[in-house]
Amino acid sequence: MNIFRFAGDMTHLLSIIVLLLKINATKSCAGVSLKTQELYLLVFVTRYLDLLYSYISLYNTFMKLFFICSSGCVIWYIREHKTVSQTYDSAQDTFRVLFLACPCMILALTVNHDFTVTEVLWTFSIYLEAVAILPQLVLLQRTKNVDTLTGNYVFLLGGYRALYLLNWIYRILTEPGYRQWIVWISGTIQTAIYCDFFYYYIKSWRNNERLSLPS
C-alpha cells in the first residue's frame, strides 16, 4: 500500500467521522441526503461481499466493516432517531435513485470482467459509487448556506477520490502489469463530478463566507 492510497482511505474514514459527529452533536441531519447514504450502503454491501470468501488483510477487513456499519448507522439516525429524523427534509431530497441504480446495473451486466454474480455486483458497486454523491450535491445546491460540517464532509469525500487517482498513477508507475480500466474510468468520472463543488468550496473558504452553491 502506498502513501496516496493510505491517505485516501484515511480521508474517507475522516469524512464519515465528520458526518457522524455533525449528526450526533447537532442532533440534526439538515443538508444530508438520505438517498446518497442509502446508495453508499448498497455500494458497500455489493462490493464487500468478498468479506465472506476472501481475505486480503486485517486493515482491509476492518475498513470494509467500518464502511458498511457507519453508512448503516447514518441511515439509522436519519430514519429512526427520535430527534434527528425530524430534521430530515424529504421534500428537498427527491433525487430518483433508480435513475442511477438501473443504468449502473445494466452497465455492470454488459461491461464486466467475468459474468458471475459476485463479479457483476462488484462492478455494479464501482459504477454506482461514481454517481452516488449526486443526490447529495443536488441537495446542497438547494440548501442556502450549507452548514460547515456538511460542506467539509463532501469536501473530504471528494479529497478521498482525488487521492485515489494519485494512488493509481503511483501504482501504474511502480507495478508492472497493473491495470484496472473499469475502476480507473469510473474513478475519474467520480472525481470529475466534484470539480464544481471544489471550486465553490475553496472560493467560500478563501472569502471566509458560508458555502452556498449557485443553482
Binding site: 464486466n112 470482467h113 467475468d114 475502476v183
Partner: peptide, 10 residues
C-alpha cells in the same frame, strides 16, 4: 474482457 483486476483496494 481482459483478466480480472486486483481487488486489494477498498
Amino acid at each position: 474482457p481482459d483478466d480480472a483486476p486486483p481487488k486489494d483496494e477498498l
